[in-house]
Write a protein that binds this DNA or RNA. Sequence first.
DNA 1: ATAGGGTTAG
Length: 675
Amino acid sequence: MNCLKYGFSHQTRCIKSGLTLTTVSSNQLVNLYSRNGLLQEARKVFDEMPERNVYSWNAVISAYVKFNDLKEALKLFRTVNSRRDVITYNTLLAGFAKTDGCESEAIEMFAEMQRKEEKGIWVDDFTLTTMLKLSAKLTNAFYGEQLHGVMVKTGNDATKFAVSSLIHMYSKCEKFKEVCNVFNGSCVEFIDGVAKNAMIAAYCREGDVERALSMFWRNPELNNTVTWNTLISGHAQNGFEEEALKMAVSMEENGLRWDEHTIASVLNVVSSLKSLKLGKEVHCRVVKNGSYSNKFISSGIIDVYCKCGDMKYAESVYLLYGFSNLYSTSSMVVGYSSQGKMVEARRLFDSLSEKNLVVWNAMFLGYLKSCQPDFVLELAREFIAKESKVTDSLVMVSILGACSLQASIEPGKEIHCHSLRTGFVMDKKLVTAFVDMYSKCGNVEYAAKVFDRSFERDTVMYNAMISGCAHHGHDQKAFQLFENMTEVGLKPDEITFIALLSACRHRGLVLEGEKYFKVMTEVYNISPEVDHYTCMIDLYGKTNRLDKAMELMKGIAQVEEDAVILGAFLNACNLNKNTEHVKEVEEKLLDIDGCNGSRYVHLANSYALCGKWDEMRHIRNRMRGKELGKFYGCSWAYIDNQLHMFKSSDISHLRSEAIYSMLHFVTKDLTEITA
DNA sequence: ATAGGGTTAG
């Protein structure tokens, strides 16, 4: 009774002729309907059975498990408590194991099975492979190893099911050595297509695409759609996008059709290639074969359009067939937020009934990258209200980034305290974020404490610490850190040298500056960029070495002349009361950055400084009529969670009189110290 | 005769 049509007619014939179906036939019928997606029909046959045996119960429970209705499956399971066998258990166990959020029920049920030995319920090879799959899903190597032990002890490790499950589990748990042990230690008869596929996936997870390929070509008769898909997604995940696409094409040439996994992988590739043309091609296929109901595929298409920056397409695909799909909405949120369209991102974010870490982080990063730290902190409060605490490293990094941006140390401290109290293990990125936050919030001592306590350090972390020292005038400490990092074998990058040069610039250390500039280009082969030049020119300007600054400027000629560099040079001229070059700079500067109001102000000030009033008037006139805005520099402080903001010569603050008299005293003190 | 397990996707 394999075909649905035959099953139907058999059933109707029996009803017409008044015969009752035998229990065996009914069982078959239940199974047939369930296999064909007819749950209600299966249930009806089951309900009308005059007599039921253990097969009947197992068949109907299995039907509910197939349809992810674990509640009903469990209800039936409880009803038959006297006539369960190991298959009843295994059926429900597999249901729990595959369902998100029911993992603990599966573990509980496995424990119950182990306790029931005397009643004729045993843990068998089916049970063990199901549990192995669960360990893989939870990436719990410890649990998986225990199960492996049980398997070996009970002789259940010598089947093809056991071998492929073990390979999969160890690979998911990043125990590649164990994967090889299982694979090499197994009889050839247990290595079938599935085990081969699991092995190819394991190689890909290791990043060893070569080995995956050579395995693919060994015993090619075993290759099926899954094998191809595994190889395609493996290549995509290891950055071999072009190869992945080629493989998808040759898969069809080998007579295998793309299935939903293939399409999802191809969409993934197209999204990282940001190819609108390919994206549309795949989209067409999806429309033709109707596979857009797959959540991976509909969100994949949306993701492609987002990555290509085509939010119109993304939006229309989303409205057509991604509307009620959590994945698609997440893709849209990620898309909008990566383009800085935070209002749109927020609208969809708020519409999500369930928010995973991916969307939360997309929002945090979006607000941070578009320089809206207030929103980051507001969102953080929402996050804490919902999840009760912040345990995700990425979320913390965003919050700390917001603190750095607005120089408010309190939220950062709170997170720090919390992670110290709970013994949270910080990763390198998080430590770096703390170092950066504490230095930017004015407490470089705390930054150094966090830095010193970190077990592992990388170049980025050193960069954060060195710039912290540089900004606080601890030049010797900055230089020392540079020595340390090279001693432990870390390679400094262009950021390291920006930090070092800015330490020199703040302290007017010409010799050291020149030394690091030379080390950077000659030892580390890093070609200087705008920021490096700016530091050096500023350094020369501050130390009255305008000749040196000019020499350096000549060297930059081949590089595109940058407004920031010219501005620094102009500043150097002003500091040295040199007026020769102002005219020359004016032409270049206004040519490059003529729509920036502050450039005109800067130039006008230079002319004023040397009393060239005609030129100054000229500049003022050029500026007028262009409706140019100048960004005012501003400064702010948080006192008792209250923001106080100041512009230049600002008297709008309620207590500005008191503030200015205090400022007067402080400045006086400082002048006396430096004098 | 009829029921349960292994490989690929944000």
